[in-house]
Amino acid sequence: MILLARGSGGAKAFGVAQASISDTAVFPDLGESAAALGLLAAAKTSDGRFRTGGDGVRAVAVTGDGKVEFVGFENHTLAHVTSSLGYPAYYPVPSLGEPAPIKAVLMDLDGTTVHSEDFWIWIIEQSTASLLGDSKFELEDSDVAHVSGHSVSEHLKYCIAKYCPDRSLEDARRFYFEHTDREMKAILDGGGRPGAFKPAPGIKEFLLELRSMGVKLGLVTSGLYEKAYPEILDVFKTLDMGDPEQFYDSIITAGTAVGRGKAGTMGELPPKPHPWLYAESLTIGLGLGFEERSSVIGIEDSGAGICALRLAGIRPVGLNDGNIGESGTGGLCHLRVDGFDQIMAEIKALG
């Protein structure tokens, strides 16, 4: 089933030119209203910087998970990416431009290319259990939206605030990487948690067909390198697809972990829903200019990923089996599907 997202220009697939709404939209270059976008209307942004009706602000809206707020002005829209770590950011929301034949496809890892979300939620659960000193601890169903789709530190900080406010993020990260390092080594050695990494249904056929069409391929993940690369390597072995570094034109991760005795790279503050990972994959990894973004699509299963794509100016395609609905970001998608065959049909329709 293909769900045509409702947003700027009404119901549409990404292969249909969108109408210009800059003169009428409450959120220019984004959508007609909070309701049309499936967002929650708000009187002001969470930091109090912008208020509906003040200083030229037409409206304020927020995603269902509260991670991104949109501020609509007469001729432009700003996006406020909130942060539990104390470093929020504002971004201009770019237009998507007219759809063009697809030159590149960017894809998320966890939940999109690989089904491993349950494994990483389990690692968060194990880390929290270690903080509590309770091996029988289990997360609640209501925690799932807060421990998936964002950065490791944000996941851990949420658990600390709810279950063990007397513990530090530093302690939580130490336990997290102890569990991760143990499990990654076990998996690469042929053991580990059974069924941790499973190829998404139809992913092999989809990737190979894109490659045969000459479409550039980018893998983009908010996961740190030490947890992300073993995933895709393991899945490529399962699928008998060789070396992922040779297959993809670009693999962008959130970097490497900061820790005593080793050098880390930026990984916890700039991941999705910030646009930087997708922007880097587009311009640096694939060598495509910002002006070529209309010929690129991004495939995601999480609300954070959908927002990251949209803020990078890339047309988002959402998979229905992720947390897009729960995060309240479905209206930001320009296409929602159940499988890769439907995406391929749309790509071919563009010529």
Results as ranks from 00 to 15, higher is better:
Gly31Arg: 09
Leu131Arg: 03
Glu226Gln: 07
Tyr158Met: 12
Ala228Met: 13
Ala100Val: 13
Met184Leu: 10
Pro271Arg: 02
Ser148Phe: 04
Ser33Ala: 11
Asp29Cys: 13
Ala79Asn: 07
Ser130Ile: 05
Val220Arg: 01
His80Met: 12
Lys262Ser: 07
Ser294Arg: 10
Val62Pro: 02
Ser295Ile: 14
Glu140Phe: 04
Lys157Tyr: 02
Val60Ser: 02
Thr82His: 09
Lys237Pro: 10
Thr24Lys: 06
Thr45Glu: 07
Leu311Tyr: 06
Glu292Asp: 15
Lys157Pro: 06
Val62Ser: 12
Ser151Trp: 01
Glu245Gly: 07
Ser130Cys: 06
Thr180Ser: 07
Ser95Asn: 11
Asp234Cys: 10
Ser130Glu: 13
Tyr163Asp: 00
Asp118Leu: 04
Val105Asn: 07
Gly331Gln: 00
Thr24Pro: 02
Tyr163Trp: 02
Ala186Phe: 11
Ala228Cys: 11
Thr329Met: 06
Asp134Pro: 13
Arg167Glu: 07
Gly255Asn: 10
Trp122Ala: 08
Glu178Arg: 09
Gly15Arg: 00
Phe197Arg: 09
Thr221Ile: 00
Gly64Arg: 06
Gly97Met: 09
Ser294Pro: 13
Glu178His: 11
Ser95Pro: 12
Gly192Arg: 14
Arg260Ile: 14
Gly328Ile: 08
Ser127Thr: 15
His179Phe: 14
Thr45Cys: 08
Leu210Glu: 00
Pro92Arg: 12
Ile160His: 06
Arg193Lys: 15
Leu131Ala: 04
Leu233Asn: 08
Leu217Ser: 01
Leu4Lys: 01
Asp166Ile: 04
Phe27Ser: 11
Ile252Trp: 01
Phe73Thr: 15
Ala196His: 08
Leu3Lys: 00
Lys44Arg: 12
Ala5Phe: 02
